[in-house]
Simulated assay, not measured.
Amino acid sequence: MIVEMKNVSFIREGRVILDRLHWEVQENEQWVILGLNGSGKTSLLNILLGYEYPSKGEVSVLGHRFGKTNLPELRKHIGFVSNSFERFQPTLESETVEEVIVSGKFASIGLYEPVTVEDFHQAEQWMNVFRIGYLKGKTYRTLSQGEKRKVLIARALMAKPKLLILDEPTVGLDMLTREELLALIKDVIMKKVCHVLYVTHYIEEIIEEMTHVLLLKDGKIIAAGQKEKILTDDYLSETFQIDVHVRWEHNRPWVSIKKALHFSK
């Protein structure tokens, strides 16, 4: 079992942010998490990473039950990429690309432990996989947004994680760079490097290799399961609170709005 949540609720200052979630991620499943801002996606990720603890219920990740495991050690087996890394920009921007990637081995931002020649060799291998070998020796602050995102995903894979969590990894990228990034994620899945949890607002980013979808609304699960059964007009309209239509092209879903919203003056 990759993820198991039983009757999980998360309450802060009297507000129910997650409400009695039951969810499982099995071996060989690749999941996408969809929901509006405020639906509970970030809180769900924080719980899976052990940065927040559920108010009620049981959580297990990679077979480790929370409350009975060493969370800092568990995080070393979970790769994580998020826009929240922006708060670490002062540290990241002073480092070379290789140093940023190697730091993933220690689940740290910045290098604070001894590093070997083999570590840097492995970082260069990931750079080649992500087709950014030309960035060797460059400082992180000189990179484009797309290059930075590739570096951070390579960093997340440095520790050979069993689970990779990608939190809106294509935000701010142009169409070409987005598709390049999705192609790299496809390779990660196809090569069975690790399991992926992919959080996005954009239905069209659900590539063929992603198998399952979790829909969140107001902290509750609207639906969860195989993507073909979950990505329907009714489920998505309820999740996004606007009437939408889903069509499939080249094994990827695309969504259009049936009727635009109008606000009276």
Rank of each mutant, 00 (worst) to 15 (best):
N37C: 09
N37L: 12
N37M: 13
N37F: 13
N37Y: 10
G38L: 14
G38S: 12
S39I: 03
G40K: 04
K41I: 00
K41A: 02
T42Q: 13
T42E: 08
S43F: 10
S43P: 01
S43Y: 02
L44V: 13
L45C: 08
L45R: 02
L45S: 04
N46Y: 13
N46F: 07
I47E: 00
I47R: 08
I47H: 00
I47F: 05
G50K: 08
G50E: 09
Y51M: 13
Y51R: 11
E52D: 15
E52T: 08
E52H: 12
Y53S: 14
Y53H: 10
Y53C: 07
P54T: 08
P54Y: 04
P54R: 09
P54A: 10
K56E: 15
K56T: 13
G57P: 02
E58L: 14
V59R: 02
S60A: 15
V61H: 05
L62K: 14
L62A: 14
L62E: 07
G63T: 01
G63C: 12
H64D: 03
H64E: 15
R65K: 15
R65L: 07
F66S: 09
G67N: 07
G67Y: 11
K68T: 05
K68F: 14
K68N: 10
T69H: 09
T69E: 15
L71F: 06
L71G: 02
P72A: 12
E73G: 01
L74P: 01
R75T: 02
R75Y: 07
K76W: 04
K76M: 06
H77A: 11
G79R: 09
G79H: 09
F80S: 08
F80I: 13
F80T: 03
V81P: 05
V81F: 09
V81A: 11
S82H: 09
S82Y: 11
N83D: 14
N83G: 15
S84K: 15
S84I: 03
E86Q: 13
E86V: 02
E86Y: 05
R87M: 11
R87A: 04
R87S: 14
R87E: 10
R87P: 00
F88E: 15
F88M: 06
Q89H: 06
Q89E: 09
P90V: 02
P90R: 11
T91M: 14
T91F: 10
L92K: 04
L92S: 01
L92R: 03
E93Q: 08
E93G: 02
S94M: 12
S94E: 13
E95V: 00
T96K: 14
T96P: 01
T96R: 14
T96W: 06
T96I: 03
T96V: 07
V97D: 11
E98D: 02
E98M: 13
E98A: 08
E98I: 00
E99Y: 01
V100K: 15
V100Q: 03
I101S: 10
V102D: 04
S103I: 00
G104A: 11
G104C: 13
G104D: 03
F106E: 05
A107E: 01
A107I: 00
S108N: 05
S108D: 07
S108A: 08
G110I: 01
G110F: 11
G110Q: 06
G110L: 05
Y112F: 15
Y112D: 07
E113H: 10
E113V: 04
E113Y: 15
E113Q: 14
P114W: 04
